[in-house]
Design a protein around this nucleic acid. Structure first.
Lengths: 289, 289
DNA sequence: TAGCAGTTAGAATTTTTATTTCACTAGTTG
DNA sequence: CAACTAGTGAAATAAAAATTCTAACTGCTA
């Protein structure tokens, strides 16, 4: 069956249906058309604003291929298909009364009343952005460098973080392993948390993550690790936190909070930064030799 | 003094300056040019998307008049001026190619060389902020609402996300339980992933989270879930992702990426928003009774 | 009311853009 | 392995859009 034959029927009338069509038929498209498909899905703005030649160049394809693509999906030609993208842009583009819209939005978000999912999401996104800004200004350069040194100097890194902190802990373990650092996640599967933590020796590093209300198990592990003379980095929300006192290095993270619900964005961002910095550091030292 | 003479100098470099110029010189323009000026100020979108002929017709003027207008303000021709409007549209339109932008951003930030941990962290924080901004503009209202409905309507929610996606999955499971929704994390402990997933019935919901390179196990679970006729929400990075096709609802999330290392910020923010929106929804219905 | 500067509409031209065609490649089938 | 087929790139062609040009119009002044 040729592409031409495939084309016959469809010709989507809205961008959404076109998107659906593309996704559905993606597999059966030829390599070049798949290339176009990908670009089309990811750069609708270009489709609306640029000429065929430009689009073609950007997907590394001949202009004629774009035309073929359009015909495959039932359009007269590429221009015909472009109309859809232009329409889409018009309907969702900030119209001249943009300012008015912003005003309405913030009013809406501020009032406790109507809370459509979208409002919630915007509120979260905004709070998280604030939290990240705060992170940038509050974490001290020296602390980051020390943390990287501690990771680099450790034989292995053990990570503990339960309940709400678990995602951060699991991310940290995953990422460290990916940059070839031995990392063990103390996850307490089968109630073996205490047992898992006895593995720590004085050459290891424990990264403990805990926020209010601090999980008792995490606090305990920090305590017993201290006795084994391993080093400890704490990621927590206050210097007074029960895991802070016993730690060699404390990162105090204020994460976003929207109506009771705490976020993890800033903590995760810190975790990422530590791992990547460590990776860069290793690379540098490697080259240094 | 002729219009031609007036033209000499200017040629505004940004839309804002052009707008200023137009307003300032409006009085001294000829009637036809005033007509164009009015239209230009009020319909910037048309200027970006339409051809001269269309614009001309809409301001009830000859195409050549538009060209004269552009020259009056110091441009080579009308096309030249149109570029401005296109640019403007690109920068302030919800840009799906934020992914590209984020990538460029980090490439740029990285090229500088100096890679102190603090620089890394700032880079991450900034990329994450971009990703969150993008999230705000790219996730559609209707999709969020549908997702909340699906969660509300499900007997139980099963969540799968492996490797890099695991933190998001574990957070979702944790948070859903906290708002009293039955949630099971398919974590594959003891290699029981397949067994865990057979628990799903047609009244349940599966939330699958997977990013490139898509974990084979996740793809499999989505497939078998489909067969069991349960509903599926996918959180993934492309409509072409292997878990997208079988899903009832797809969230396409472009997370920040700094030198190979993908972030999870946007995905987590979406997860949070879903859970909290669900909680609000429950509360509202509860009060309704 | 003749003459003039500035403006305009519309046709003519040039340039750009889209589409079609064709020749070539690689892969498949009998 | 020959004959086909789908897919592709590149050049040729067609279409369209933008720009320029010219003749005619407007309102003003002498």
């Amino acid at each position: 069956m040729t592409l031409r034959e495939l084309a016959v029927a469809s010709s989507a009338k809205t961008l959404e249906t076109l998107r659906g069509d593309i996704v559905r038929r993606y597999e059966e498209l030829s390599p070049r058309l798949q290339q176009v498909a990908k670009y089309v899905l990811e750069n609708p703005n270009d489709m609306a604003l640029q000429t065929l030649a430009v689009i073609a160049e950007r997907c590394e394809v001949q202009p004629s291929t774009i035309v073929r693509f359009a015909k495959t999906f039932g359009y007269e030609g590429a221009s015909d298909m472009q109309e859809l993208f232009k329409d889409e842009m018009l309907t969702q583009a900030p119209s001249p009364s943009y300012a008015e819209r912003i005003r309405q939005f913030s009013r809406r978000a501020g009032a406790a009343g109507a809370l459509a999912p979208q409002d919630v999401m915007h509120e979260f996104a905004d709070s998280n952005i604030l939290a990240l800004e705060h992170l940038k200004s509050s974490v001290r350069k020296a602390d980051l460098e020390r943390a990287v040194d501690m990771i680099a100097g450790a034989n292995a890194v053990y990570i503990v973080g339960l309940r709400r902190s678990f995602p951060v802990a699991s991310y940290l373990a995953y990422a460290l392993r990916h940059v070839d650092k031995r990392a063990y996640l103390l996850d307490g599967v089968a109630g073996m948390l205490a047992e898992q933590s006895t593995m720590l020796t004085s050459k290891d590093l424990l990264i403990a993550i805990s926020f209010q209300p601090y999980a008792a198990e995490t606090v305990e592990i920090v305590g017993s690790t201290r006795e084994q003379k391993a080093r400890i980095i704490a990621i927590t929300d206050s210097r007074l936190s029960p895991i802070a006192a016993a730690s060699d290095l404390v990162f105090e993270i204020k994460d976003a909070e929207v109506r009771q619900f705490r976020s993890l964005t800033a903590s995760l961002c810190l975790a990422q930064s530590l791992v990547i910095s460590y990776a860069f550091d290793m690379e540098k030292r490697g080259r240094g030799r």
